[in-house]
Write a protein that binds this DNA or RNA. Structure first.
Lengths: 337, 337
DNA sequence: GTGAAAGCGCTAACAA
DNA sequence: TTGTTAGCGCTTTCAC
């Protein structure tokens, strides 16, 4: 293993000079710099991460805590994680992958050991048990998601309330009066995961203003669950003509069932989804949708975190504005029936 | 920040004693151990990761390199990654998340800096450019996937050749003679990703032995691509009655299109998928399938790696035996037509 | 613009 | 069974 000392000898300078060439923390003459850089190349030197962490009290590692559960849409998680890792690298950080399994203990472990300089938490619940710990430490952190109380925390998320409102507005504009919301699995609501509840709130309050009726039904993914859910919806509200779906694994079953019931999309019923663009485009009907900007969320989270680490001021809450893309699954309500 | 020295003072012992209590590398009297453990508790001590890494020349970190691309089935990747992280923790390791973006450079960086003790590579291609580097270093590594030349490498993967054979056997037993294989996106084959080609080889060679005809078509996911692919298949081989699908985002489109063409599953055509059980169960027809054991793959990869790190012998190639689960999408070929 | 040297917190010989 | 001590490779004062 090549050490900094060896580089110094090889270049005919002192260890500190090599260190400063690397860090750029003091000016170096052009000649010296070149010789040092040449030696680094020739010897294939890589600074030792442990030594660096010990001496500088910085690990250059960001911890990312992903949920262990997989009842939520996994590709979104993965896309966020990859965006986090990619963006972190551009700022000189590596990413440590923690699962939710350890829970609050992981926060303590990482904070206490100096393993990571900062952390990003995904899948934050409204009243998350990790939050007190984060508030009580000086380790910078960013949440992807929005808990009930954001004081003292930095959060990045899609503005789900605005998302819900946007969906309902679009349907209202098309003349729909009875809206059914097909939501995430019941467990998601029971855990009080922020995004699901906020979508619903935004949607309901806008619907109230616009005078629309809303029926909300959580739904496990898959065909069997969807069959039941859909039957109940039409049973309770036969005049439903607009659907808002926030559950990727319910999208295709819903479309298939509607087809089977000879309800044409968008002639008889309109469907709008909250999902990644890829899902909207690949569905059997190209779906009008509000996109979940997974990459953007991961990227912004890292940028907020790096700003904190650099001692720059950060926003407390970054809410990304939802964007509606109109495709082939929504249309004006039928005037014939 | 609490240091080992502070714990030592608090417990009235020397630093090394505290260290040995932690590592268990020499026997400690019960009394001393208790006092030390008590001090650790009281002071809330966590060993400093950097210092430990520097002194012991071990980071207790495993690097996991995930593909940047997302044209493959992402949930499988995520499930593997989570299984890796979870299993690694049970062995005292943390996981560093690297994306494929840096390519071979990431291998150099991690190896050279001592950031990680070992690495796991996912999405290995037949002739992967990272392999020479791995062979040339003494850093232990495990591949998830199987390259063309496995010499000097440890690999974990599903036995995809056996998987392909198993699919074809099942269809043959049911009397099908003309088989269509709907594969991954063309890009996957162009990159010569091992698993896709091996499935095909296993399938073809068994089909030859059994005297079946096989038509293979790569397919991007989604409905549009599937429509085209399916049309071509029936155009070229009108007598096709058996489908093998190895592409999660083609599964549902295929089923929907068959339905639309009034080809009943499994009465008219049989469909067997290579996919995670969850996908098979949630599809609109419960699919006969060979499971992709994502968790098992992640777990085994870590276990192989830990064995190497502990200096134990390891298998060169661990091929997990495929398991066929018969569900509702396959049946005997119709004798009426 | 450069060098010398004192740690950072821990591990693991070597001693006792 | 326990203590003493010399590093691990780097960063960063302090000195020139």
């Amino acid at each position: 293993m090549v050490t900094l000392a060896e580089v110094a000898t090889h270049a005919g300078v002192s260890a500190s000079t090599v260190s400063y060439v690397l860090s750029g923390k003091r000016s170096i003459s052009a000649g010296t710099r070149q010789r040092v850089e040449r030696s680094i190349q020739e010897l294939g030197y890589h600074p030792n991460a442990g030594a660096r962490a010990l001496a500088s009290n910085k690990s250059n590692i960001i911890a990312l805590m992903v949920p262990l559960r997989t009842d939520m849409y996994v590709p979104v998680m993965m896309e966020i994680a990859i965006a986090v890792a990619t963006t972190a690298r551009t700022h000189g950080y590596d990413v440590l992958l923690l699962t939710g399994e350890e829970g609050p203990d992981a926060v303590r472990r990482v904070t206490g050991s100096g393993l990571a300089d900062a952390m990003i938490l995904m899948d934050v619940e409204m009243d998350d048990e990790r939050l007190p710990l984060l508030r009580g430490t000086d380790q910078p952190s960013v949440l992807i998601g929005l808990p009930a109380d954001t004081s003292g925390l930095t959060c990045v998320d899609l503005d789900f309330a605005a998302t819900g409102a946007l969906c309902v507005e679009h349907l209202a504009t098309l003349g729909h009066r009875d809206i059914a919301v097909i939501g995430e699995a019941p467990g998601v609501y029971e855990r009080h995961t922020g995004f699901a509840e906020r979508t619903l709130e935004g949607l309901r309050s806008r619907a109230r203003e616009l005078g629309l009726r809303v029926l909300h039904r959580p739904c496990e993914g898959g065909y069997d669950a969807m069959t039941l859910t859909l039957a109940r919806i039409f049973d309770e509200r036969p005049d439903t003509t607009g659907f808002v779906v926030q559950n990727e694994s319910a999208v295709e079953p819903l479309l298939a069932l509607l087809r089977r019931q000879s309800r044409a999309v968008p002639e008889d019923v309109s469907v709008i989804a909250v999902c990644p663009d890829q899902v909207a485009v690949q569905a059997s009907v190209r779906l009008t949708s509000v996109a979940i900007p997974a990459q953007e969320m991961g990227r912004r989270a890292v940028e907020q975190l790096v700003a904190k680490l650099d001692g720059r001021d950060t926003d407390e809450v970054v809410l990304l504005a939802p964007e509606l893309t109109i495709r082939a699954s929504t249309g004006p309500v039928s005037t014939l029936s």
